[in-house]
Amino acid sequence: MITTSPRPWVRAGALIVALAATLGGCGSSAPRTATLSASETQALYIRENRASGIPRRFGDTKPHDWGAISPQRYPVHGLDAARYQGVINWHEARDAGIRFGYLKATEGGDVLDPAFVQNAAGARAAGVPVGAYHFYYFCRPAHEQAAWFIANVPKRRGDLPPILDMEWNHLSPTCRIRPPAAEVRASIREFSRIVERHYGTAPVIYTTPDFYARNDLGSLRGTEFWLRSVTAHPSERYPDERWSFWQYTGTGLVPGVRGPVDLNAFAGNEANWQRWLAARSQG
């Protein structure tokens, strides 16, 4: 779930406004001033980045040519975000079809995401189910990281279950180690056990194809997965694995969200989603 911070439609919007102003002046003695609001500029940028295979009101700056099993086949979609997306307008996102949101809350044993509190409150106010995720740091014990997450993410009735984000972080300036697979799986179990005891619901494990394969995560029986697969259906990248969420792009565009954002699909239909919410939301 590592995200980036570019806001491409800010640059594109400036070009659009400049072009409109120039064209407005052609053939007339008094050039017209083109004015587009931020939301109008965003909407125009999304329209220019329509992508097949995903819900129509979303866009993608790097679309994939989906085959027979496209993300659009699934009716329930959501996003995950961090501080790079700034303050999200959850009412706009909800009206565009966003049904859930996951937000980065913590990392390691001493890092907080400064956007978490405000965006989580905004999602709840808009009626969008929201949850928190922890980005795992391989140079700190699992029990310390679980304690840090618990200390900074209040237990709230109706919030989504926690997410444990397990992936290699090649960008980390302080921790480049890659522990043995057995140690990685033991860390997942320890973190999950502590967090489940506190929140009353087990965390979902987010991961990537390389991390999943390298650490044999398929051997973690009873684990609920959120799987990243941006160029193929999860069944191709994670053969025989069950999943609840599929992250199908990291370059999605959604009304109300500044810049590219991760988009995700829930595995089932509307009835499945409601049952999952009832069973897995915090009590």
Rank of each mutant, 00 (worst) to 15 (best):
E183V: 11
G127M: 04
L164T: 01
A125N: 11
L112G: 03
Q145Y: 05
Q118N: 13
Y136V: 10
V76N: 00
G127V: 04
D165L: 03
A120G: 08
V117P: 02
H91Y: 08
V184F: 00
P203N: 03
R83M: 10
A132S: 14
L112F: 01
E167N: 04
G122R: 02
P203M: 06
G78K: 05
C139N: 13
K104F: 08
P180G: 04
Y136C: 04
S187D: 09
W148V: 05
C175T: 12
A81W: 03
N152D: 03
N89F: 05
L103P: 11
P154Y: 12
G97L: 04
Q85E: 10
P203D: 07
A121P: 09
S187E: 05
A142R: 04
R94A: 12
G101W: 00
H143Q: 15
V76H: 06
A82Y: 06
H77C: 03
M166H: 05
T207D: 05
Y102W: 12
R99V: 01
A82P: 11
E144F: 11
R193V: 09
E190C: 07
W148Y: 14
V128K: 00
E144H: 14
N89K: 11
A81V: 13
L171Y: 13
E92K: 13
E92Q: 15
Y199I: 10
L171N: 13
I98E: 03
G109V: 10
E107H: 10
P179V: 07
F149M: 10
G200W: 13
F100E: 00
C139A: 15
R94W: 02
G97I: 06
L79Q: 01
L103Q: 08
A93T: 08
V195L: 10
G109P: 09
Y84A: 09
D113L: 07
H198N: 13
L112S: 01
A82S: 15
R197T: 14
H91T: 15
C175K: 11
I205L: 14
G97E: 00
P209C: 13
A147T: 13
Q85I: 08
S192E: 04
R193S: 15
Y199S: 09
I188N: 02
A132W: 04
D110G: 15
A202L: 11
A182D: 15
